[in-house]
Amino acid sequence: MTRLTSAVRVSALVRRVHNAGGSAMVLAKGDAMAGAILILLLDRGERPRFRERGLGVEGQLIESGPRDADSQTASDYWRRRRERDPDLWVVEVDVADGERFADETIAAG
C-alpha cells in the first residue's frame, strides 16, 4: 500500500480548509516525503492549540503543546519544535471544526 507523502497531506489539508471558507497556511515546510506535521488550530484567530500525528486512541491526532496559550506562546512553541526537528511541517488552520479537518486529512492512512 502506498502512503501519502507529508507534502501531499499538507496540500490536501490547505485545499480542504480553503474550500470550506477557512484560512490555512504553511508556516514552515518540512521534509516533503516523511516530515512530521504539527497543526496550529485557531478559532477566528484566537484560542491557539496544536494537534499532531501520534498515538490517539482511535487513530485521531493527539493534542500537543501548551494549553491555554496566547499567540506568542504558541509561536514560540512551534519555533522551538522546528529548531529540534527541521523536517517538521507547521500548518496554521483557522476554520470551524478544524480538529475534524486535521484528523480526516493528516491522520488518515
Rank of each mutant, 00 (worst) to 15 (best):
R53I: 01
V26Q: 03
L27Q: 09
E52N: 11
E52P: 02
R47F: 03
E58C: 10
V17W: 00
V95N: 02
Q60P: 01
K29F: 00
S6M: 04
R53F: 14
P86C: 12
D87V: 05
D85R: 14
L42Y: 03
G35P: 03
V93G: 00
A69E: 03
K29E: 07
V90C: 11
D70F: 02
V90Y: 06
G65H: 08
L27F: 12
P86S: 15
A7G: 13
R84A: 07
R53L: 04
P66Y: 08
S64C: 00
A69Y: 01
E104I: 03
R16D: 07
A32L: 13
S71A: 12
V95H: 01
R80V: 04
V14K: 11
D103M: 06
G54H: 03
I62H: 15
D76C: 09
D43I: 08
V95Y: 00
L61V: 05
H18P: 04
L27C: 12
R47M: 13
D76K: 14
T5W: 03
E104K: 12
E63N: 06
L42T: 05
V14P: 04
G59H: 00
S71N: 09
V91A: 01
I106M: 04
T105G: 09
L41N: 05
D94I: 01
D85L: 12
G56N: 04
G56T: 03
L4D: 05
L40N: 02
W78L: 04
V91N: 02
